[in-house]
Design a binder for these strands. Structure first.
Lengths: 136, 136
DNA sequence: CTTGACCCCGTATCTATCTACGGGGTTTAT
DNA sequence: ATAAACCCCGTAGATAGATACGGGGTCAAG
């Protein structure tokens, strides 16, 4: 353990473009890594996890700004525990909301595949309807 | 019921910009509405649900292209049930994956708030680590 | 029958998130 | 010690998803 990575290695392991790494660094999503005497970046091995986390969170509909907020929850050591808790709770609410909606979508889709299980025409199976339950 | 909406009303009810409605129509996410003699669009009342669905799905990380695929599941009447089922199952897998990741994030966050419950400094509560369980 | 709010369309502009380019140093394998 | 492969930086270009602009019709109230 404790291997360090070049930007290219990190990009490959994180399954993103090399330029994306530089972009994330610029945006403060990845801490600025130390440099070798050559000027090359030298990333710690666990930077891979951070890159993947960013990508996954994005796929869940979080903007990079929001991802940064999530990451800052664990990084910011000068914020009080209470402050962190408050922000974490807000994120938690976001997450729970997403889960709820996804579960409603899942239910509708399962209903759709059950209803239209291999033959009948569909017309208007209620994918949309099962959302929009109550929120405004 | 059966009221029809102007584009402006639809935008307001759907909580999006008016231009966004035209954009969605252009992109095939909203069916082209009939026009009044004036040329004004006349949307059915339930277009609101569609707009909201689109927004919600986006917040869950689906691109507009993917949203369209979801919507087409219910609209396309000339696809066989089996075809629809296959595509629905694919979407279902996407959704379940998202739910899984969100649940992992939720767990980590809850752990974080529990651990750092109002006082201790945090340092490196494992938000990131609990993701990246196994997928590649 | 005018005024303000609303709609039309086409086109241009904006933001977020990358991705590519170009000219140059560095490392590595032969 | 040289060629391939990699990295640096700054800047430009690409893509998705809106948003805005501008010149002009339309509708409803007074």
């Amino acid at each position: 353990m404790g291997e360090s990575l070049t930007i290219g290695e990190l990009a490959k392991l994180g399954k993103v473009n090399l330029e994306t790494i530089r972009y994330y660094e610029q945006q403060g999503l990845i801490p600025k890594p130390p440099r070798l005497s050559s000027g090359y970046r030298s990333f710690p091995a666990d930077a891979v996890n951070r890159v993947r986390f960013i990508k996954q969170a994005q796929e869940l509909g979080f903007s990079l700004r929001e991802v940064k907020e999530l990451l800052d929850l664990q990084v910011n050591p000068d914020s009080t525990g209470a402050d962190v808790k408050q922000r974490a709770d807000a994120k938690l609410a976001d997450i729970e909301e997403k889960i709820k909606i996804l579960q409603a979508m899942k239910k509708s889709l399962m209903n759709l595949t059950a209803t239209c299980n291999g033959k009948s025409s569909i017309g208007d199976c209620p994918i949309i309807k099962s959302l929009n339950s109550d929120k405004g």
